[in-house]
């Protein structure tokens, strides 16, 4: 996107949410285990296309890229993830409740 026209740069800053920090930590740890490289993470991010930058937040794109790499590497399957996500949703309606086993 370098060189593309764009509007004003928003200078708002926020502290990252806990779930965002956890995504960051998982990416770093998975890379440290040799499960994928920084280039592999970026390949997925770039494959998402420019519309993902409009519709998803930064760490939403990261968690999607993390998942894609782990599935490709065979760490777990899509159905394993889906089943787990369903169980998590049953725990509660907020992040705090769902993150608590």
């Amino acid at each position: 996107m370098g060189g593309a026209e764009s509007g004003a740069i928003s200078r708002d800053e926020h502290d990252f949410a806990f779930w965002e920090k956890r995504v960051d930590a998982l990416v770093i740890l998975a890379q440290a285990r040799g499960l994928f490289t920084v280039d592999a993470l970026r390949r997925v991010l770039e494959d998402m296309g420019p519309e993902a930058f409009e519709t998803m937040s930064y760490y939403e794109r990261w968690v999607a890229a993390l998942n894609q790499n782990l599935v490709e590497r065979g760490v777990y399957t899509v159905s394993e993830l889906g089943a787990r996500m369903e169980r998590i949703a049953e725990r509660g309606v907020t992040y705090g409740e769902a993150a608590d086993e």
């Binding site: 502290d15 998982l26 939403e60 760490v75």
Partner: peptide, 30 residues
Amino acid sequence: PYRTDDDVPLSYWQQMEIAIREILIEKGVT
């Protein structure tokens, strides 16, 4: 400012983060 966090409705991507984290812990990756 803090970004609204624990008390907001669970999003699809947050759900995915929790799931990945739990699976990686269960499998001993971390």
